[in-house]
Design a protein around this nucleic acid. Structure first.
Length: 577
RNA sequence: GGGCGCGUAGCUCAGUCGGUAGAGCACCGGCCUUUUAAGCCGUUGGUCGUGAGUUCGAGCCUCACCGCGCUCACCA
């Protein structure tokens, strides 16, 4: 590839270099005035008043450049090297002799190789008849050296008079090393590729304002290199998961995001409407019921990585649209899925970070260690100090038995920990014994789980899509993976008995009628029909991709791993856009 | 939705006791042919989130509202 780079060839194309080009002049000149004239008919000619002096200056400068025949928005450019490629090939690219005078004597044994690079100018250091500019391309920063004696006249004029930090430029010339030892491209030719009309954030503090970073992520990405790294890692994580699943024989599918009946999770949906069919639809809260229909159809290993939408509050761990990996494996139960999760997490960390040792907000976790497997009730009993023969069980008829077992221990805890106040009240106010115990788990045990832990064996009454255990019918074969204090995955052995599924759906609808906003509103009869055709025993898994990315990138907020998190519209004067 | 905090120049931030708004960088002008946040000299730039109120006088005090962050509730 580099061999094609004609050594010092005069024919290297420089498509829009034409400061001097008459045709370019005419064309851009005409375009400019036409554009102005053709603007929305009665639109006021003046730009918005609040633009500020810097923006007005930039506009006036752009007008002057257009009048001089400069194309502010070039058609194309052919970079031969990224900054990373130049660094990787330093030995073969750097001019043999640094002595600039000898170049004039035309005796240089080998003409230096000419390269072309492109990127956004982030620093300018003019020094009279020469100067440096630092630019970034996707692989990093690099500097160019501009000098009146070597740079084309139009390029030098551009650098001296018109170039702004933020502009995107193309540079052509040989690579050399400066006296201070920095790898540099000598700009034999310098061309404007895109004019920036707005200034970049301050050059060493960057962009700090969190709100602006989220609202204008493009600026955040320019100004904060570590943000680029985070989103590169996010992409690499998803890519790693896909290749692992593909290698294991899973097929990626897409199922409906607009659904007539929503299901597959306990959550409130977004509502929308199809005009032509005059049909009310929901944005999906989970793809589960459709993916399982596919296992009925004979696809034994399927997965989907895509968005779900839940009409709930926003927090550092919740965005209304979030990305989930959901997969289903025929003939497995939830213990097989536990093994899969461990292997997926390990391999992804290795692929993306090169290690299984993770630091998250001060916690250290090694994914190479076997994940703990712990029944919920054992964790609750341990927190309450009840010992091995704790007597806790799912499906107890009365709340009274839970109260008898737990309240003495809870009261002791409340006395010791002020933040645990009202725990006893919450237990007494629960709708069922199962909910009381789940509440105890969430309050007492869940926040303290740092090492990766499969919390397993949930109450059947709260898991309408999960198959029960043979050993104890009150137990649902379900686990959730917790790590560093938050939930990362949820999985179970799938309920595939159509009669039982119908009964559980009907129970859900009754709950909804009693006022549970997160229960199903309507039985999905087609899903029951699918089960009647026979679904193989199967285990399903959901991994919250955003949270997994948070864990691997040490991000405190889900908004730091979602490119464009949902924000309220900016109103009034805080609107900077 | 509740609680706490924040909002000042394009960016990062000061702003005392209520006395009429500042710095650095950026911008603009000048000098400078291997710099490194280049340097030197000189300018310019403000609806102090919005709107009321108190006051002779409000960036500062009071109230309401808007937006953001953290947190609680809810959830994955």
């Amino acid at each position: 590839m580099f061999a094609e780079l004609a050594r010092g060839s005069p024919e290297l194309s420089f498509p829009q270099s034409g400061f001097m080009s008459d045709t370019t002049t005419e064309k851009t000149g005409a375009t400019t005035s036409d554009t102005k004239g053709a603007a929305p008919a009665e639109a006021p000619a003046e730009a918005p008043v609040d633009e500020g002096r810097i923006l007005r200056d930039r506009r006036e400068k752009a007008d002057r450049m257009r009048e001089a025949g400069i194309n502010l928005y070039a058609q194309r450019f052919d970079p031969t090297h990224s900054s990373a490629q130049v660094r990787a090939n330093e030995a073969s690219l750097v001019k043999p002799a640094e002595d600039t005078d000898s170049a004039e004597t035309s005796e240089s044994p080998e003409p230096a190789q000419i390269v072309r690079m492109a990127g956004r100018v982030i620093l300018r250091r003019p020094m009279g008849k020469a100067g440096f500019l630092t630019f970034i391309d996707e692989s990093g920063r690099f500097q160019a050296y501009v000098k009146r004696d070597v740079t084309d006249a139009a390029g030098f004029e551009l650098f001296k008079k018109m170039l702004d930090v933020g502009d995107i430029v193309g540079i052509e010339g040989p690579i050399f090393v400066t006296r201070k030892g920095e790898l540099t491209i000598q700009a034999d030719r310098l061309t404007l590729l895109t004019k920036a009309m707005r200034p970049l954030p301050e050059k060493w503090h960057g962009l700090k304002d969190v709100e602006q970073r989220y609202r204008q992520r493009y600026v955040d990405l320019i100004a904060n290199p570590e943000v680029r790294d985070t989103f590169r890692q996010r992409s690499a994580i998803i890519s790693s998961l896909r290749s692992q699943l593909d290698a294991r024989g899973y097929m990626e599918v897409e199922t409906p995001m607009m659904q007539l009946i929503y299901g597959g999770a306990a959550a409130r949906p977004f509502e929308t409407h199809h005009n032509a069919l005059d049909l009310d639809l929901y944005l999906r809260i989970a793809p589960e019921l459709f993916l399982k229909r596919l296992t009925v159809g004979g696809f034994e290993r399927v997965y989907e990585i895509n968005r779900n939408f839940r009409n709930e509050g926003i927090s550092t761990r919740h965005n209304p649209e979030f990305t989930m990996l959901e997969l289903y494996t025929a003939y497995w139960d939830y213990t097989d899925t536990m093994t899969l999760v461990e292997e997926l997490f390990r391999k992804t960390a290795l692929d993306v970070l090169g290690t299984t040792e993770i630091k998250y907000q001060g916690n250290e976790v090694d994914l190479a260690e076997p994940f703990v497997r712990a029944p919920i009730l054992d964790l609750v009993a341990a927190e309450l100090g009840l010992g091995a023969e704790h007597g806790l069980a799912w499906g107890l008829d009365s709340l009274g038995s839970v109260i008898d077992l737990c309240i003495p221990a809870i009261e002791k805890i409340e006395a010791e920990r002020p933040e645990a106040k009202s725990l006893a009240d919450a237990v007494k106010a629960a709708d069922s014994a199962d909910e009381a115990l789940m509440h105890l788990f969430e309050e007492l045990a869940e926040p303290g789980i740092v090492q990766p832990t499969f919390v397993m064996d949930y109450p059947k009454s709260l898991c309408p899509l999960t198959k029960s255990s043979q050993a104890d019918p009150a137990i649902a074969e379900r686990f959730e993976l917790f790590c560093c204090g938050f939930e990362l995955a949820n999985a179970y052995s799938e309920l595939n008995d159509p009669d039982e599924q119908l009964a559980r759906f009907e129970d859900q609808v009754r709950r909804g009628e009693r006022g549970d906003a997160e229960a199903m509103k309507e039985v999905d009869h087609d899903y029951v029909t699918a089960l009647q055709y026979g679904m193989p025993p199967a285990s399903g898994l959901g991994i919250g991709i955003d949270r997994f990315v948070m864990l691997l990138t040490d991000s405190l907020s889900i908004r730091d791993v979602i490119l464009f998190p949902l924000m309220r519209p900016a109103k009034g004067s805080t609107d900077r856009s």
